Amino acid sequence: MIKRILIALDPDEDTPIATQYAISLAERNDASVTGLAVVDTSNIYPTGIIGDPDQTHHARNLWEELTDNSRNVAGRLLEKFESSVEKSGVRYTAITQEGASYDRIIEGMKYHDLLVVGRDSHFFYNEPKQETKTLAQVVKNGVSPTLIVTHHFEEVHKVLIAFDGSRPASRSLKSFAHLSPFGKDLEIELLHISKTDNDDSESSSETILDFANDYLLEHDFKNVTQKFMAGDKISEAILKRRKEIGADLIVLGAHAVSAIKRLTFGSTTHELITKTDSPLFMTP
């Protein structure tokens, strides 16, 4: 059950779509929505030379100017958010906080059931195109599931759950079943991908999928099918299958970890976030 939804606001093209998804979910679940704008002062550094009064004064003025600019951006984001939710009649709260964006968002996740965010969000209002690690840090270290949206809105009727039996995948499966954000009347396909294509792999896959299928059935999801695929490129296989069945949502675990991977996501997760045309539901 979803009762509180958090939207992390950012001046990117995805944020209005994230707001639209959050409003739709709030209407379906009789939930409230919180719009959060973060003035990320951790990314604004004074550059003066210690001991040089002129340089220090200049740096201080620059820091204040950049911070004020970020506050102005935050204010405009909240105005747009409030305008959208007021039209819908959904209950809402709009807040601004200052500090490191990932810290403030993760703190907000503690008291919300779901975070909705755009995949292009960077949360550095002074340089909105600057790539940051915020999204990865939030998804991996947050305490609630995250719905990562793309550039367009679609009602969710068909769901692809990429399930490999791992802990992250299991947590995402359970969170999706418990929250039921899009209701129970969904077409769901459970997908298991193996790097080898033989009888043993398929048998192992069937066992994993059967357990996941039984779990979903117990949670009143009645229209569930299973699919086994083989391939080295897991992300490509997931995206290919999503396109084949026309899934409106992909559910998967937030596999993470190498700091040398782009955005600190694992390669499969990064590829999916970058290339998918549908939202991703992820739990750390």
Rank of each mutant, 00 (worst) to 15 (best):
I238P: 03
V85W: 00
Y102V: 04
F124L: 05
G231C: 03
K275I: 01
F265D: 05
E13G: 07
A18C: 09
F81G: 00
S24E: 13
I2C: 04
S203V: 12
R167A: 14
T34H: 09
S278W: 00
V139K: 03
H178Y: 15
I49N: 02
I95T: 15
P284M: 05
A59P: 00
N198P: 08
S205I: 04
L66P: 06
I260L: 06
S101H: 04
F163C: 00
K275V: 03
D185N: 12
G48D: 10
S83K: 02
S203I: 11
I23S: 11
G266S: 07
A259S: 10
H152L: 10
A37F: 07
D199S: 15
V116H: 05
T56Y: 03
S180C: 05
T47N: 15
T207M: 14
L62I: 12
H152M: 13
T207P: 12
D52R: 00
S170K: 08
V143L: 08
K275Q: 00
D103W: 13
Q55T: 08
T96W: 01
F265T: 01
A94D: 13
P168S: 11
Q226Y: 02
H157P: 08
R76H: 13
A136R: 05
I260T: 09
F153D: 06
E189I: 06
E64T: 03
E236T: 01
Q97H: 09
L6R: 00
T67M: 03
P16T: 04
E187W: 12
H219P: 06
G142I: 13
L78V: 09
P53D: 04
T15K: 06
F153S: 10
V224T: 08
E244N: 04
K261W: 01
N198A: 15
M1I: 07
A74C: 11
L160P: 04
I161Q: 01
G183D: 03
K222C: 08
N61G: 08
N69R: 15
D199Q: 15
L77Q: 04
F182S: 09
E13P: 12
Y92E: 09
V39E: 05
K158D: 05
A100R: 14
S121A: 15
D199R: 14
E236M: 05
D210A: 12
T93E: 10
S194F: 02
A8F: 01
A31C: 13
K140R: 06
P284G: 14
L186T: 10
A230R: 13
T34P: 08
D52P: 03
N141W: 03
E98R: 09
Y125W: 10
H157L: 07
S201W: 11
E187V: 09
D210W: 06
F265Y: 02
A254K: 10
